[in-house]
Amino acid sequence: MTKRSGDAADGRTLVSGSARGPALRLEEPLSLWGGMDPTTGKVIDRRHPQAGEELAGRVVLMPSGRGSSSSSSVLAEAVRAGTAPAAVVLLEPDPIVALGAVVAAELYGRRVPVVVLDEAAYGAIRTGDEVVVEADDEKASVSVTGR
């Protein structure tokens, strides 16, 4: 599904939109509900290896979603409060994360693109990389513009 051309990797769009920001790779899946505080934009799941990390404004890479179905609400609330990730990049499609972004776009007109990359493209992005996400209904492109 995914191929690399130059610096840009092509993936699949779950939710369209454009975003840029510094990447944060989550080492383990995170349930946003119980795992992210939408008032601060931080990881609050104490069992998560990156507890305390800031998600707000970052291009968040996580292998998959996890756990509670209330995570959609937490993402929508974070979008409303301005603490949401700039974009979410997944290895496996996660409808719950996608839904939070779809509803936030309907309610607040602010889009958080959600895309799926294959393992090679996902693995090439490191925490701290400056990343640009361009996702439309046809395809998604994720490129590293600075390291």
Binding site: P38, S73, A76, E77, V79, R80, A81, L107
Partner: peptide, 17 residues
């Protein structure tokens, strides 16, 4: 339906809409 648990203003905004 799980959406009836309050998670912040977004929960209410959606239901009101």
């Amino acid at each position: 339906v799980d959406g009836c648990l309050y998670h912040g203003q977004a929960s209410l905004d959606f239901a009101e809409r």
